[in-house]
Nucleic acid binder design. Structure first.
Lengths: 230, 230
DNA sequence: ATTTTACCATTACGATGTATCGCAACAGTA
DNA sequence: TACTGTTGCGATACATCGTAATGGTAAAAT
């Protein structure tokens, strides 16, 4: 058995780190949604066995946590924003845009506390922009209220977007035509107001809706920041 | 081969309907969370084979849709509420309470459009309470803004609650002590505002936070309903 | 040079959602 | 009453999943 008969030794396994793992997972999720992310497929992208990953994460949920935090790096504004209102608005819009780039984020948003370094940095920046404008509790409530709003709004927007894609219709048409079910329901006359909205409502740009609702909430915050807490 | 040797004919399979299926699924989810809901286990509860369910639903997601709609029956207020503000507030609180009873709802809230009969009824009631107070689009935006808020707020509340349960600590303590990670992060000094909030913030009752944020949003809505749209 | 350690691939297990298929009980017809 | 279609159900099967356990092998330590 000469050297020539023996194959070359297998190339050393490609080095791994969380960054590479998370990048692979995000790529998969971007392409096929969260459900396309399996530890096996992530590992395969890195020319590794599935079990290899357990050196870096101990559960699939942790991988999701890492993914979410990674996207928060995109959310973190690059320049310190002007006033508090601008800071909150930017935070909301950047989150929305990031979610449009990575739709799977909608499935994770608000699902678990985000304690990764990037998420903390985002929170810090936002809090800092409000610091001193009112007592701590009010500031916190302001940030949480705004973020509750945009979390919910983004999730709904993505949910609608998926429904539109699934049916190939705009939301407006989709509600009326696509669902014989909805059609039928409305025809019963049990939902007169809803029917009015569906039939007479104008179709509004998603981004505009988002921005308008956000402005309302920001107005509310402004009112509470203005005067000391009740 | 006498009669006695022959077994009795198998009892006819227990009759099934969606109501029973959904009830079984909800029971499972209440006990063990959404992940405890598998078609096999649901079917087992009904003394049926898994495939039997596919006569009533064609996919697991549909089962989730049915579950969500079923809970909306609990959310629907029994008496027509007073004014619009009360209507929105009641909608929010009833949704929150339902989610506390069925925590898994937090995982589904806002994830898909809710078009079931009960969900439509809830929407109708809410819309009806605002009907005529402003043009349709404003009314719709009001309802959507409020519901985006409470969807997001509820999800965060449940997320925190789970984290507390998992660590056995209150959120306050959990952020400071449990996570050596968070501790360390804050100690870096890179998150001064956040540190202040974590260390100096008072611990507020979850329901109170929810109610306060909700009131803020309702104030904002009130302002927009008062004067005609910009 | 030998032992220890640390890592990694393999194997394996139980569970899942769902496609397929064959059967058995009923409905309707002759 | 015999026969035949139809319908709905169970069993089987498959591909996939997350992850526990195992065992080998290469680098580090002695």
């Amino acid at each position: 058995m000469t050297v020539w008969d023996r194959p070359e030794p297998p190339t050393r396994p490609v080095p791994l780190d969380r960054e590479r793992i998370v990048a692979a997972a995000i790529a998969l999720a971007d392409e096929g949604g969260l459900e396309a992310v399996s530890l096996r497929k992530v590992a395969a992208r890195l020319d590794a066995g599935p079990m290899r990953l357990y050196g870096y994460i101990s559960t699939k949920e942790e991988l999701f946590d890492l993914m979410v935090d990674e996207v928060h790096a995109e959310i973190l504004p690059e320049e310190r924003p002007g006033d508090w209102r601008e800071a909150l608005r930017v935070h909301a819009h950047r989150t929305r845009r990031a979610t449009l780039r990575h739709e799977w984020l909608a499935d994770l948003l608000g699902g678990r506390p985000n304690l990764g370094p990037n998420a903390l940095a985002v929170t810090e920046t936002t809090l800092a922009a409000l610091d001193g404008l009112a007592d701590l509790d009010t500031v916190l409530r302001a940030v949480e209220t705004v973020s509750a709003y945009f979390t919910g709004a983004i999730r709904r927007e993505i949910a609608n977007l998926r429904a539109e894609r699934a049916t190939g219709l705009s939301k407006h048409d989709w509600q009326r035509a696509s669902g014989p079910h909805v059609e039928k329901m409305l025809a019963t006359g049990r939902f007169p107001t809803l029917a009015k909205v569906v039939y007479d409502g104008t179709e509004v740009d998603a981004e505009a809706s988002f921005a308008t609702g956000l402005d309302w909430v920001l107005d509310a915050v402004a009112a509470k920041l203005a005067r000391p807490p009740a």
